[in-house]
Design a protein around this nucleic acid. Structure first.
Lengths: 214, 214
DNA sequence: GGGTAATCCACATGATGATGTGGTTCAAGG
DNA sequence: CCTTGAACCACATCATCATGTGGATTACCC
């Protein structure tokens, strides 16, 4: 099995060195770059004649200068093949999602034992993803049925109309599609607006796409 | 530590019984209901005078009768407190997401060792979530920056306009917000339509909310 | 220095959307 | 039996949107 090339970006020297020592001790793991900030990392990545190979990267969020989340974009630009693992003390939802949306592939709590982090690196390099359980829970909750404020307040017919609106159809096309008069379409939409407390197509589409309707 | 009450819905008797035997052997785990289909499960859940307690439920997808995914809704209606774990051979993306959207909290491959499944149950009962690594990867990829078809094709100003459209603002309000003439707003939007190859506000909002723009 | 692109603005026209009023039919429930 | 609500349709009016044509300024690149 080939070596896995790692990078760490972490400002706390204690954590950084303990990771470096523990993970570096494994024969299949080796460090390409160890940095204290994203800026530092990018600079070190420029230095060598040829760009170093990095398979998996451990990235802190709370960094001096550019935050880890901002850093993800820059790093992915230069290292599109690298799997980025956020390693952080915070489990705030918005940080988790911002990280994932920016392109991180895993999100691990710093409280996680080193041995588990090591396992995670192998898992990730195999094409998987490792999430701390509490973080995974937050992620799956994002898919879950929402609070259902509007649930069942729209009749089946009204839901069809909303679907059509979301598909970008005009009143005329909706009328054709559902084989009803355009005035009836207007009528439905009037009622939908009242029910959803909106007053434009745009807002309906937004609500629908945000999952605020069903 | 209190006992964890389990349920299994799985049509394959071999798998069902091996789970029952292995997991049931643990002193902290006990089975409330074991069923071969969702229908079977719901019937058994009705029988006793008082509704049985179920903390964690293992649910197969490929079931006779109602599929596991359909079943999630019915089960959550009756057992809103139960954490539902999909346990399945399939790792198809749409099934994963349909399950999560219906309210499953974890998704585990049947190839996973029994000991890991057992650990997962404890993790889940603690309020976490367990995903097989390959499945977790598919989940996080859903958050990742998309194929970037439209990336960078919109100028910063155009992106501001799109944002405003998504917020449901009219041309007039956008003009006020950006302190420009309404005709200029029209002008921007004309160009945006050409770039995105659409011809209505609705489609722009859809694209933006689907992440097809940035 | 001419080409290109982004931003800005104006005028005009037809299509679409938002909203109100008024009416019919049918099915479900008190 | 009568009310209520969903779904259906029509007419009317004003606002907003979609689209075209034409022009100005700035800035950057070859």
């Amino acid at each position: 099995m080939e070596n896995i090339h790692l990078a760490i970006v972490e400002d706390d020297p204690v954590i950084r060195e303990s990771l470096e020592t523990y993970l570096g001790a494994h024969p299949a793991l080796q460090f390409s770059i160890v940095a204290g900030s994203v800026e530092d990392f990018l600079e070190k990545a420029e230095k060598p004649a040829r760009v170093p190979k990095i398979d998996v990267m451990l990235l802190d969020i709370g960094l001096p200068g550019m935050s880890g989340i901002e850093g993800i974009r820059h790093i992915r630009q230069k290292f599109p093949e690298t799997d980025i693992v956020m390693l952080t003390t915070f489990e705030e939802e918005d940080k988790i999602f911002k990280s994932l949306c920016s392109g991180a592939c895993s999100y691990i709590s710093k409280r996680t034992p080193l041995s588990t982090i090591q396992e995670a690196i192998f898992t990730i390099h195999r094409g998987g993803s490792f999430m701390s359980p509490s973080i995974a829970r937050k992620v799956v909750q994002h898919f879950m049925p929402k609070a259902r404020k509007e649930e069942d307040i729209l009749s089946p017919r009204q839901q069809q109309i909303v679907e059509a609106l979301v598909d970008g159809l005009s009143y005329k096309l909706i009328a054709d599609k559902l084989s009803i008069s355009i005035d009836t379409v207007r009528d439905h939409i009037k009622r939908i607006y009242k029910l959803l407390e909106v007053n434009s197509k745009a807002e309906v589409i937004r609500k629908a796409l945000d999952g605020d309707i069903y």
